[in-house]
């Protein structure tokens, strides 16, 4: 049954486990969320929380262990080689490090003409060159970069090329896997602005994966926090910064570094973050966050809390809010 919604991407109880010598790594362990048409959905988490695994599963680099990935109501929980070319044209990805996502042995021209050729987006040789030049202009790179190789250009410029490659097929949905975390701060702002601009211009939907919570305030319409393969809290971005509910979210927000007192006043009360994210091989029993949680209760080490909707669109997975506390 296909339910008509304006959700472009829906993820239902997605699990991705890896079998390793140390044991089963539960990189993603039963998460659900949906991305609405035209919005930016922010997925935030520490390193090792499994946020990139979510992106790789959506794009088809991994097959989900369990659960479903739905694109416009259609199940796409398979590996990329089993997916249709039309789907590969619709869903695109920008990887974290442009240094490794662009082939050093291929020129910018070869990199950008590949999606055009695969999806038959241009009729002839001249048309391809014109389209590539258009793409370069779009990401504000000089047209003569067409002859350069990735190693000859800067990190930010490489990421522009990677974005141009993703947008070359006129996609509807773009996965941004920490697109700015490998770059200088000055370049980061430029790329973020460009991404926002493209979203309006081409009516794109983004799944924006990052560990930079402060970035989400300006970019995302809704934010989900991931911890050890599970989502702790989903909320609209404004609500999220005003009224964070999960202790982990509060901890993350209070650890954002600020420069002025006014900004400091906006932050929730200081919660000293303690400990590190545990290994996903030995996930603690009960709530996986209880080892670091300042509000730990007896129940936390025994039972894993379930997602509850506290207010409209704001869901949280914590025993503080499960029954009587709401």
């Amino acid at each position: 049954m296909i339910i008509l919604t304006n959700n472009i991407l829906t993820i239902e109880q997605l699990k991705k486990h890896f079998v390793t010598r140390q044991g089963i790594v539960k990189a993603v362990d039963g998460i659900s969320f949906s991305v609405k048409e035209g919005e930016t959905f922010g997925l935030v988490g520490e390193s090792g929380s499994g946020k990139s695994t979510v992106a790789y599963t959506v794009i088809g680099m991994y097959k989900p262990t369990k659960g479903k990935v739905l694109y416009r109501g259609k199940n796409i929980s398979q590996e990329s080689k089993k997916r249709s070319q039309a789907l590969k044209k619709e869903i695109r990805i920008v990887f974290q490090d442009p240094g490794t996502s662009l082939n050093p042995a291929r020129s910018i021209r070869q990199i950008l003409e590949l999606p055009l050729k695969i999806h038959n987006l241009s009729r002839n040789h001249k048309d391809i060159v014109n389209k590539i030049e258009e793409l370069l202009k779009m990401v504000q790179l000089p047209v003569d970069y067409i002859y350069k190789y990735p190693l000859m250009i800067g990190g930010g410029e490489k990421q522009m090329v990677a974005i141009a490659r993703a947008l070359a097929t006129n996609p509807s949905f773009v996965l941004l896997d920490e697109p700015t975390s490998a770059l200088d701060v000055s370049v980061q702002a430029k790329i973020i602005n460009m991404l926002i601009q493209f979203q309006k211009k081409f009516n794109l939907s983004y799944l924006f994966i990052t560990h930079d919570l402060s970035l989400m305030r300006n970019v995302a319409s809704r934010v989900a926090i991931m911890y050890l393969g599970k989502i702790c809290e989903i909320a609209p971005a404004s609500e999220f910064f005003k009224n964070p509910l999960h202790p982990y979210t509060q901890m993350l927000l209070s650890s954002i570094s600020v420069i002025s007192d006014e900004e400091e006043a906006l932050k929730p009360k200081k919660i000293i973050s303690k400990g590190e994210i545990p290994s996903p091989v030995n996930v603690p029993p009960g709530c996986s966050f209880h080892l670091r949680c300042p509000n730990k209760m007896d129940i936390c080490s025994r039972e894993d809390p379930v997602m509850v909707e506290v207010s409209k669109g704001h869901t949280v997975r914590c025993h503080l809010y499960t029954n009587t506390h709401v």
Binding site: F95, D97, S101, L114
Partner: peptide, 13 residues
């Protein structure tokens, strides 16, 4: 395992 190979793969090459 490099990302440029993955990018080509998921891009439909």
């Amino acid at each position: 395992g490099e990302f440029f190979v993955q990018a080509a793969e998921v891009g439909g090459a």
